[in-house]
Simulated assay, not measured.
Amino acid sequence: MRRPSRTGVTLSALLVLTAGAAGPATSAAGEGRPVRNALAGTWRMVSAVSDPGGPAERRPYGANPDGMVTFNENGTFVEVFQNPAIPPFASGERVGTPEENAAVVGRSLGQFGTYEVDRKGEYSSNVIIGSTWPNRNGQRWQTPVLRFIRKGDQLTEVLQAPGLPRLEIRFVRVP
């Protein structure tokens, strides 16, 4: 018997998050005043390096990663990252062999949630509502563990979680 698909539920959740039912992002201080949001927009991933310059340096999404993150003005985000070199499943079906499934899980990530900016409009925290990595569901990330540094049309995400190597992901703004 075929299991019911959760794709419709996930797609519906993403549409609700990206539709922008709430107002503009507000400051983490809870003042409710709109602030200039330095993250708002869509960003394309150009590189992702774990332990940059260190002995365990690796590229979790390959040499030429593909992915995007969108930060909506209403304080929601959605991101999908992948290694475009992941081969298609030989069967053509949605579920592959154990080896094929492991390649997908190990070289891709999709998640969505909410985020806040501080009084200067810079990232202060997020909550992951749903993720293809189930351990992240419900997690709250905030500075200094997770930082976003914007310089013009370039954005760098720096994740330095306890017990894990530093991860740097670089993005360019999608016009």
Rank of each mutant, 00 (worst) to 15 (best):
N135E: 10
F81C: 06
E168G: 02
R107H: 14
W141G: 14
S125Q: 07
V174R: 09
S27W: 06
L39W: 02
A19P: 00
N64W: 13
I86E: 01
F89C: 05
P84A: 04
L159P: 02
T97R: 11
T132Q: 15
G75E: 01
E73C: 05
V117N: 09
L14V: 06
G62T: 00
P144K: 04
F171P: 10
E57L: 10
Y115Q: 10
G152R: 04
G53V: 02
R44D: 14
Q82T: 11
E79N: 05
P144T: 07
A90V: 09
T7C: 13
N74T: 13
N74H: 08
R150H: 09
G113N: 05
P34L: 10
N137V: 15
F171E: 13
T42C: 04
P65A: 04
A28V: 04
E122Q: 13
T7W: 14
T114Q: 12
P34G: 09
G106I: 00
R36T: 06
T10F: 13
V49E: 07
A85F: 00
F81K: 03
A29R: 14
W43S: 06
T10D: 14
G152W: 07
R107L: 08
P165C: 00
R3W: 05
R150C: 09
D66M: 09
G163T: 01
L11M: 14
V35I: 05
S47Y: 04
E99T: 15
S108N: 07
S125A: 12
E100A: 14
P165V: 00
L155T: 03
T70N: 11
E116F: 03
A40R: 03
R36I: 00
G20K: 04
G54M: 05
A103F: 03
V69K: 01
E79D: 08
T7P: 02
R59N: 03
S91N: 01
R44P: 03
R170W: 03
P24Q: 05
G54W: 08
S27E: 08
G92C: 01
N101Y: 06
R166P: 04
V16Y: 01
P34Y: 11
A29L: 14
A103P: 08
V172S: 06
G113K: 03
F89D: 07
E168Y: 08
T10Q: 13
P165F: 00
V35E: 08
S108D: 09
N126S: 11
G41M: 11
N83T: 00
W133S: 15
E57I: 06
G41A: 12
N72L: 14
G138Q: 09
T10Y: 13
A22R: 10
R2P: 15
G30A: 04
G96T: 06
T156H: 08
S5V: 02
T70I: 11
N64M: 15
L167V: 05
W133Q: 15
L17V: 05
A161N: 08
R166S: 05
V69C: 03
V49Q: 09
E168D: 11
N126K: 06
P84Q: 09
N64E: 15
G163P: 00
G30S: 09
S125I: 02
D51N: 10
R107S: 13
M68L: 15
